[in-house]
């Protein structure tokens, strides 16, 4: 029941609350984010300031872009486990190609592996019906291996993170991280694509019911190939921003972001079964994960315990969230 229509009298207040939550899942997420920030402020008064916000946002952006890959592929009922590798490849390639070809061409080259791996993922999952989990895991391993081979060929060239990427990744202008210059338009395009383009409509449709989309004339493989290519390109962009932020390319640079990117999408309300979710929620999900990380860091706990707590909180939050937003 949407807010604009009259509710039938039979719905109880609890049911109505759940329907509202189901229709506007972003509301509880924003509330949760606000609560976490209040908790943080109470535990360490004064920590929530302009610098901290800018820093949190800065680190959340590469995560949020990788989570966009998960959101889009999860909407179709898939997942993309190759995004960590793609981002790492893009970062490593841009750093090693800049000394040779200059930053502009290096960036172009850096995005090529993302397109190729995305294409392979799409063909595997869409045409040959390999489960995306296996398909993307496989291409991810292949990518990692290829990167190691590549590394030997560029040992002599040295590495250099382009100034532009460093400026985008770490720079803050007037309190706003420069990365927002890339992220805001990108997020706007993704949200617009999901909500208001035919492609976005099909992502939801094939994930919700592939058979129904088929009898409506949709070629499944076209949608899947396209979404994994888009995912590969986005992962490449995330890698470029991330190397600008970390400034130290390595062979496993973005791998630690892989599972948080899945978590961000799930916390953001995208169903791993497909057909339900959106990018706005994912962005808030990425922010929530970053704030949680800060929260656990300032508790001065041993690393292991921190991870245990982190995992528990994600599970509990997701469970509660699914409970209050599912209307059945």
């Amino acid at each position: 029941m949407t807010a604009t229509t009259t509710a039938p009298p039979a719905l109880s207040p609890g049911r109505r609350f759940r329907r509202f939550m189901a229709d506007y899942p972003i509301v509880p997420l924003i509330v949760l984010l606000a609560v976490l920030m209040v908790v943080l402020e109470i535990m360490r008064p004064g920590i929530v300031n302009e610098r901290w916000v800018a820093n949190t946002v800065k680190f959340a952006i590469p995560l949020a872009i990788l989570a966009a890959c998960q959101t889009m592929t999860m909407l179709t009922g898939g997942i993309d486990l190759s995004v960590g590798t793609i981002a790492t490849m893009a970062a490593f390639i841009v750093a090693t190609q800049t000394p040779v070809h200059g930053p502009a061409i290096a960036v172009m080259i850096a995005l090529v592996p993302g397109v190729l791996i995305g294409l392979a993922n799409g063909i595997g999952a869409g045409v040959f019906r390999v489960h995306p989990l296996i398909m993307t895991l496989g291409t991810s391993l292949i990518g990692t291996g290829a990167l190691q081979v590549y590394q030997r060929t560029v040992i002599a060239t040295g590495s250099e993170v382009p100034d532009a990427l460093a400026w985008l990744g770490t720079g803050v202008t007037g309190g706003f991280p420069n990365a927002l210059l890339v992220f805001v338009p990108l997020a706007a395009v993704i949200i617009y694509t999901l909500r208001s383009t035919g492609f976005g409509r099909l992502l939801y449709a094939v994930g919700d019911n592939e058979k129904a989309s088929r009898i409506s004339g949709v070629h499944y493989w076209q949608v899947i190939v396209a979404v994994y290519i888009v995912s590969g390109v986005l992962a490449g962009i995330a890698g470029l921003l991330y190397v600008g932020l970390i400034k130290a390319p390595s062979l496993s640079l973005a791998e630690p972001l892989l599972l948080p990117s899945v978590a961000a999408a799930v916390i953001g309300g995208t169903s791993i079964f497909g057909g339900r979710g959106g990018y706005a929620g994912t962005i808030v999900g990425a922010l929530i994960l970053r704030v949680l990380t800060t929260l656990l860091t300032i508790l001065h706990m041993p690393e292991g315990l921190r991870d245990v707590l982190f995992g528990l909180i994600i599970l509990v939050v997701t469970a509660i969230y699914l409970r209050i937003t599912s209307d059945t």
Binding site: S196, T197, G198, F199, R201, L202, Y204, A205, D208, N209, K211, A212, S213, I215, S216, G217, V218, H219, Q222, A226, G275, R276
Partner: peptide, 26 residues
């Protein structure tokens, strides 16, 4: 078999409008 159960009435009706690649745009 015929409906995307989690999607709206309008989206379900509109599905064939976007089926072909040239209609993937806005």
């Amino acid at each position: 078999e015929a409906l995307c159960m989690q999607r709206s009435v309008r989206e379900n009706i509109a599905l064939p409008f976007s089926a072909r690649i040239p209609t993937w745009g806005p």
